[in-house]
Write a protein that binds this DNA or RNA. Structure first.
Length: 424
RNA sequence: GGAGAGGUGGGUGAGUGGCUGAAACCAACAGUUUGCUAAACUGUCGUACGGGUUAAACUGUACCGGGGGUUCGAAUCCCCCCCUCUCCGCCA
């Protein structure tokens, strides 16, 4: 959520920046917010004055009572009654305006960073870095959904039976590979100074609002209505919400957290030809890195996170490219996002395995996540997060790219974690 | 799930209707003193939204788990909810 005082001061610049997202209602919503804010301040000023008067009279009554001037006190009481009525009305109006303002603010996406290119869609994302050569596989190369059957390591039919589509069952070396990747990712992050967190994988409503899944992306999450809890779509939600309503001291910064969790996504209506096999699931595993940084450091932090994730992909010997997302493809909360895509040789497609974003103060404003700076002023922090990494598509690429007639070779970096070098 | 006890500022904790945004102590921060450290002393020390100012100073309102109510006036009284602790029940 953008800060209303910033909107007030930088109206023109914000509207212009939002054009990069092709966000048509930008000017309309920004102006609406400014109007509501003006009305809110007027009403508050009026109401505060009335309450101040009312407080004054209450003290006067107290004093009169003490002096035993009961009659005079009664006379003053009459005056407070009218004030009370006016204030009640004004408070109700104020409340309504505040709600309305909040609703409008919830509809306005984050302002893209100046380096974000305009664009119409995913095709306009810019590849800023590529690494590794694309695997050359023979005609007989199989996509991962065939390979997992051939070696009996991941079973969609079984998952279908006990849960439904998009809930695969990992077996044998498939299960072991998953576990190896999770441990590999966690260990590497810890080496880089990240603190491992094991958060709950269900969260309450307030947390959903804190990171921006609610109210607009309600359909993305599984909702347990009996207890009003949500299954997390990403570890970002619980880990970032750890810092909801928190004022950090400078010495606690920067925050570097890493967490492994299963992730749950309803992905309603998004099933089709491109999402076969492991490409898109309702439940998947992911290791997520979450950073909280001072504003002046956040873009250096973003670069550092990208370098870290790229290092992981290189250790896994996967060809990848790094995309700078254009305005049209940029997530609602994000100011700048890099996607990492690995190449899956048999599908001959790039698969997104990581999305690394700087949210600047957009989440922190909702979360009320601040720190006390050197001047002793409380100031919003910047939040960032990135997948490091999402497992299923990594598995898909490993399986497809490393297939041979003898079996599937496991990247060397994982050997100590898998305990085997080949799936056959 | 049942019964009881509680929830006050970063922490401990006082406060049962007005003089309380809240004592005291601890922690933290700044300073004084001191070869250094420690100690002592002095000061500062909640948040949000307004007004005001170039910026401050200054100033208004709200907030003592959350929401509602009683009252001229609520941390304090009443109701509902949430959470924590103890005991019981159930249980990986």
């Amino acid at each position: 959520m953008l800060q209303i005082n910033v909107i007030r001061e930088e109206r023109k610049e914000i509207i212009a920046s939002l054009q990069k997202r092709n966000f048509k209602e930008a000017e309309e919503l920004i102006d609406k917010a400014i109007d509501l804010d003006k009305s809110r301040r007027e009403k508050q000023l009026k109401n505060d004055d009335i309450l101040a008067e009312s407080n004054r009279l209450a003290k006067e009554i107290g004093a009169l009572m003490k002096e035993g001037k009961k009659k005079e006190a009664e006379e003053v009481k009459v005056r407070t009654a009218a004030l009370k009525k006016t204030s009640a009305d004004l408070s109700a109006e104020l409340e309504a305006v505040e709600q309305e303002l909040k609703k409008v603010l919830y509809l306005i996406p984050n302002v893209p960073h100046e380096s974000v290119p305009k664009g119409k869609g995913a095709d306009d994302n810019i590849s800023v870095h590529e690494h590794g050569s694309l695997p050359v596989l023979g005609e007989e190369a199989q996509p991962h959904w065939d390979l997992i059957k051939k070696y009996d390591i991941i079973d969609f039919d079984l998952g279908n039976k006990i849960s439904g589509a998009g809930f695969p069952v990992y077996k044998g070396k498939g299960a072991r590979l998953q576990r190896a990747l999770i441990n590999f990712f966690l260990d590497k992050a810890i080496e880089q100074g990240y603190l491992e967190i094991q958060p709950p994988i269900v969260v309450n409503e307030a947390s959903g609002y804190g990171t921006g899944q609610l109210p607009d992306k309600e359909g993305q999450m599984y909702h347990m209505t009996l207890d009003n809890l949500y299954m997390i779509p990403t570890a970002e939600v619980p880990i970032t919400n750890l810092y909801r309503d928190v004022i950090l001291t400078e010495s606690e910064l920067p925050i570097k957290n890493v967490g492994y969790t299963p992730c749950f996504r309803r992905e309603a209506g998004s099933w089709g030809a491109h999402v076969r096999g492991l490409n898109r699931l309702h439940q998947f595993d992911k290791v997520e890195i979450v950073r909280i940084a001072k504003p002046e450091n956040s873009y250096a932090t973003l670069e550092e996170m990208c370098n870290y994730v790229q290092g992981l992909l290189e250790q896994l010997e996967l060809p990848y490219r790094k995309l700078l997302l254009c305005g049209a493809d940029l997530g609602f909360n994000s100011a700048l996002t890099y996607d990492m895509e690995v190449y899956a040789g048999a599908q001959k497609r790039w698969l997104e395995v990581s999305s690394i974003s700087n949210f600047e103060t957009f989440q922190a404003n909702r979360l009320k996540l601040r720190y006390k700076n050197k001047e002793g002023k409380t100031q919003l922090l910047h939040t960032l997060n990135g997948s490091a990494l999402a497992l299923p598509r990594i598995v898909a690429a490993i399986l497809e790219n490393n297939q041979t007639s003898n079996g599937i070779n496991i990247p060397k970096a994982l050997w100590e974690y898998t305990g085997f070098k080949i799936i056959n």
